[in-house]
């Protein structure tokens, strides 16, 4: 009998191709693991609708499970409830920071349509100053915004709250 925990720990080794320090579990993409006799069903949800990494993530999940002898795997994508950065694990946030990307704040402040909002105070992942400014709320991937630290002068990515 396959244990649910075994599958979860295997999934923790599947990393996001764009942010390779985060596993699909850290990101909160895995919503549920179902074990029915010999069939595994993984319920997952995408981050952003257009995220081009999703196809690769699905393939990596299959490959990892296959390497450990799980051939009968069904991947089911659900859209509701919609993914939020609040599902990112605390461990994931620590890993992001160590990697040089500012982790998402818990506040859902920016998820409102009000104009010219005050910028969130984002901590620089390099020198830990809060004296930072937003360059663009759209960054190198859908999930990130671009910031610059006014103290150490370094630009950095912020994994924006969503």
């Amino acid at each position: 009998m396959v244990k649910n925990d075994t599958i979860w720990s295997l999934l923790e080794t599947v990393n996001d191709p764009e942010v390779p320090v985060l596993s699909v579990v850290d990101l909160g993409l895995i919503r549920e693991v179902r074990v029915n006799n010999e069939e595994l069903e993984i319920i997952l949800t995408p981050t952003y609708s257009g995220c081009p990494a999703m196809d690769l993530i699905r393939m990596s999940i299959r490959m990892t499970l296959l390497e450990h002898g799980y051939e009968n795997v069904k991947l089911t994508t659900v859209l509701s409830p919609a993914w939020t950065t609040d599902w990112m694990s605390e461990r994931g946030k620590e890993k992001l920071k160590a990697y040089g990307i500012a982790p998402p704040l818990p506040s859902q402040q920016v998820c409102r349509p009000a104009l010219f909002q005050r910028e969130e105070a984002i901590e620089c992942p390099h020198c830990h100053s809060y004296h930072t400014m937003r360059i663009s709320e759209f960054g190198s991937t859908a999930c990130k915004a671009l910031y610059r630290c006014k103290d150490c002068g370094e630009p950095f990515d912020y994994f924006k709250c969503h």
Partner: peptide, 9 residues
């Protein structure tokens, strides 16, 4: 980049 991100969404 901003508009390209919107296009992607």
């Amino acid at each position: 980049i901003a508009l390209s991100n919107i296009a992607l969404d």
